[in-house]
């Protein structure tokens, strides 16, 4: 795609990544994981609940340290959280003591930007996610979809090279979810940042991603890589196209195998 010429930053390389959580049981979350993500690529991790997919994201974000293996962003090892890797959480994680505007300005404030500049940046991204007029509201006064839009704007305003998204639309109703997915695709097409998106929703992964990495039940390994060759820009209409349906069937079979394994379900 032409877009890929725009950005050459945001390449992620993961080699032999394992994560074992300490504690009396020693949960083995990730086992010998290897993958590359290209600059500007939209990749979805698709896996069943509790398979360790959020842990992958937390390692890339720098919240969780690998037990072994390495994770590189643009050839630099990731050791700690940084504003080049913004994250949108499942439970929005907006600061309830700050207004919408102050939440979006948080990154600029940390980076010591001048007040006028902060305001300008924040307003731009509030417009982008369609939240103008809600500057002085508090997060608890917004609906779930609006809260996640603030979460996205808060990350974008910080201009990261990589956006990490941890089931950000998981708690929204089905209609709102599709609208949020379309909004996210618009944004991605505009800024072309690398996006790593974690979900357990097959439709969501197919609709959004260039590439889907299907994970096994815990410990997470890559079961299969699926290239989603659906045309872009995508709208909800592709959800009923022939190609989409056949892709979905293939993905569902794979993910079902893992769900049955995770549930220890034998038939």
């Amino acid at each position: 795609m032409i877009m890929e010429v725009f950005s050459n930053k945001g390449k992620i390389i993961v080699r032999n990544l394992s994560v074992v959580f300490k504690g009396n049981k020693g949960v083995h979350a990730i086992d010998q994981l290897n993958f590359d993500i290209q600059p500007g690529e939209f990749v979805c991790f698709l896996g069943t609940t509790g398979c360790g997919k959020s842990t992958i994201l937390n390692v890339i974000a720098g919240f969780v340290h690998p037990t072994s293996g390495e994770v590189l962003l643009d050839a630099q090892p990731i050791t700690a959280p940084s504003s080049e890797r913004g994250i949108v959480f499942q439970q929005h994680a907006l600061f309830p003591w700050k207004t919408v505007l102050a939440n979006i300005e948080f990154g600029s404030k940390i980076h010591e930007k001048k007040k006028e500049e902060r305001r300008l940046i924040a307003k731009r991204y509030m417009d982008l996610v369609g939240l103008s007029g809600f500057e002085n509201s508090y997060p608890s006064q917004l609906s779930g979809g609006m809260q996640q839009r603030v979460g996205i704007a808060r990350v974008l305003a910080n201009n990261p090279t990589v956006m990490l998204m941890d089931e950000p639309f998981g708690s929204l109703d089905a209609q709102t979810r599709v609208i949020m997915q379309e909004l996210l695709l618009d944004i991605w097409q505009k800024f072309h940042k690398t996006i790593i998106f974690v979900t357990h929703d097959v439709d969501e992964a197919l609709f959004l991603a260039d590439r889907i990495l299907i994970l096994t039940a815990r410990p997470a390994q890559i079961k299969k890589e699926i290239k989603v060759s659906l045309p872009r820009p995508r709208t909800y209409e592709i959800l009923t196209s022939q190609k989409y349906v056949s892709l979905k069937k293939a993905v569902m079979e794979l993910i079902r195998e893992e769900s049955l394994k995770a549930l220890n379900f034998k038939r």
Partner: peptide, 24 residues
């Protein structure tokens, strides 16, 4: 997640304390 959010938005320990931990 509040602390993680702050750190991934670039906050160091001191800013995280003043801007996040205390108000939270």
């Amino acid at each position: 997640t509040y602390i993680w959010a702050a750190k991934s938005l670039g906050a160091g320990n001191r800013r995280t304390l003043c801007e996040v931990i205390l108000p939270a």
